[in-house]
């Protein structure tokens, strides 16, 4: 366990050597780090390699090195660009609305009132439910033109039932995402509210600020950091959303709700075009890295100094 152990062994290859040395010196961190590297990075390297081949699982005889052909194809094909736009729409829409709804939830349950524990529990539950079951419940108990309660209500007013998922697919997916992620935002915002000095709020109230003024001038400025954090973490999860889309819309109708993960899924498991899917995955990862670098800076500033 000495830090001088075999530096020469690693010294030959500078970067790998430095990394090896670091691993050697940090036996407590090494196992966790190596597991994550092997399981997430090795497959990614393979993905990069696959992306350079024309490779459809169903036509092994047609497999060949394709250089950047797959990349040219996915850029030429509007589907990929469309799916990026869809991903961003879902992420921005769902994150902003979840923030708003989560803030409302948090303000509603922050102070003591009759049944607060039950109300908070009910509000958190959508986040705990297995996403595919949550989506299934929405699809059939809420939105379905035949079994859905919303359409039953619509019919009571004499209107014809509406195919919500078919007519308003993006809104339907965003609704389910907000339903699922607003509790997440609420939880973080609640932590922020707990850290808020009660005296400050009291003072604002005594000044006749009224509930809205109190929120506007005292609560929101204090919560800024927490809202940023929930937006950041929410984006991480929502941008990769797959389960809800799989269960609710299968990317349709048309390609209205096909986001990047679902498009890649379709490319792998419906058309078995591994080359294309890999190229899309690589582009997505590179794009994500750029965004992540920026977001992580933000995260770093939110977390204070790390070293």
């Amino acid at each position: 366990m000495t830090s001088e152990a075999n530096p020469a062994l690693f010294g030959r290859i500078p970067i790998l050597g430095r990394f090896g040395l670091w691993i050697w010196r940090n036996p407590l961190i090494a196992p966790a780090l190596l597991v994550v590297i092997v399981v997430t990075q090795a497959p990614f390297i393979l993905t990069v390699i696959y992306s350079l081949f024309r490779w459809n699982l169903q036509r092994p005889e047609n497999t060949a090195f394709n250089a950047f052909g797959n990349y040219v194809d996915i850029v030429r094909d509007t589907r990929f660009l469309d799916s990026i736009v869809t991903s961003l729409t879902f992420t921005v829409g769902a994150v902003l609305l979840s923030l708003l709804v989560g803030l409302i939830y948090a303000l509603l349950v922050h102070d003591r009132f009759f049944g607060r524990g039950i109300v908070r529990t009910l509000l958190i539950t959508p986040f705990l439910i297995m996403p595919i079951i949550g989506a299934l419940a929405w699809k059939y108990t809420v939105l379905s033109p035949i079994f859905g309660v919303v359409n039953w209500i619509v019919r009571q007013f004499g209107a014809a039932p509406i195919d919500w998922i078919g007519m308003y697919p993006v809104a339907s997916v965003v609704a389910v995402l907000v339903w699922r992620w607003a509790p997440f935002m609420m939880i973080i915002i609640l932590a922020g509210l707990q850290a808020l000095d009660d005296d400050q709020r009291e003072a604002a109230r005594m000044d006749g600020a009224g509930p809205l003024g109190e929120i506007r001038f005292v609560v929101l400025p204090h919560l800024k950091k927490y809202l940023q954090l929930s937006a950041l973490l929410g984006s991480i999860f929502i941008v990769n959303e797959f389960d809800v889309i799989f269960m609710l819309t299968q990317g349709g109708p048309g390609t209205a709700t096909t986001n990047v993960p679902f498009l890649i899924y379709q490319s792998v498991f419906y058309s078995f075009d591994i080359g294309h899917a890999a190229a899309m995955a690589v582009v997505t990862v590179l794009g994500t890295i750029i965004i992540v670098t920026y977001l992580l800076k933000l995260l770093g500033s939110l977390m204070g100094d790390l070293d």
Binding site: N26, L33, V36, F44, T47, A281, T288, G300
Partner: peptide, 25 residues
Amino acid sequence: TTGKRNVLFFLISTRFLPAVGVIIP
């Protein structure tokens, strides 16, 4: 411990990657 920031950021960045992108490998 040195390099904490790098390790922590590397770890969390793996959560950004779409699992479906590496599903075939």
